[in-house]
Amino acid sequence: MPPFEENLMPAWLLKPNPISARFLFLAGLLAVWEIASVAGLMSRFIVPPPSEIFPTIALLFTDYDLTGSFLRTFGETFAAAGLGALGGMLGGWWLHHNRVAGKAYTDWVAAIAAAPLVLLFPLFLVIFGRNAATIVAMGTVASLPPVVLKTKEGLDNVRSVLVDVGRTFGLTRWQQVKMIMFPASLPTIFTGLRLGLVFALINVVGVEYLIGFGGMGLLIAELGDRFEIAGMYAAILFVILTSICFFYLTEKLETWLLSAR
């Protein structure tokens, strides 16, 4: 039985909870920001107070078609990630299947994955023009390498005993792929798909902002160019929040897939 005095203390003070502490920190940060901006310690023109920024998010939906921008960006992202997934899985399968090709090209794919691919956008701009094709192409280029690498890794690491069992049951090559290779390597492939999706989103928003075309990236660029500072902050905040939700959900899906293995 704990002493009587201890029971009088709130539980969160006895054992601080990281989640409560995180929200407390964020609330404190917003309060300091608000006070500093309102008191004139920071220029309201450069850093508007949160009380001006948050209501502007609602205005973005009504006056700037934020829903349309959001759907356009995510449409481009999923198109790019879908193309990247298709090409990447085929590429990964080929590098796994053809050992010499795997030895010859895997390092190259890893080097391409580490390269600043987004800087290639002027090349795509001259080929496709200033339209959605350039944005989707850039997203696809960025999402390909992780999918190729993770598909190859997943297929390479399928336990040989599983393949042998398939052989003893007389499975055809296609049945082996469908019933053994693919399910066994799915969690690793999914990691690649998730990374591909994340890279595609980052590149899509980046290229939208740079070329001034598309969805949320364009919206931020337009608001910045018009010096609608509170609106620009609100749009940036919205992009950050949606990115965080997106990554959180895909990460949870990956964890669930790994645990269900």
């Binding site: 980052i202 740079l210 990236g217 992009v239 965080i244």
Partner: peptide, 8 residues
């Protein structure tokens, strides 16, 4: 998150 959105 895409860092380029902080550029403005």
């Amino acid at each position: 998150t895409p860092k380029v959105v902080f550029l403005p």
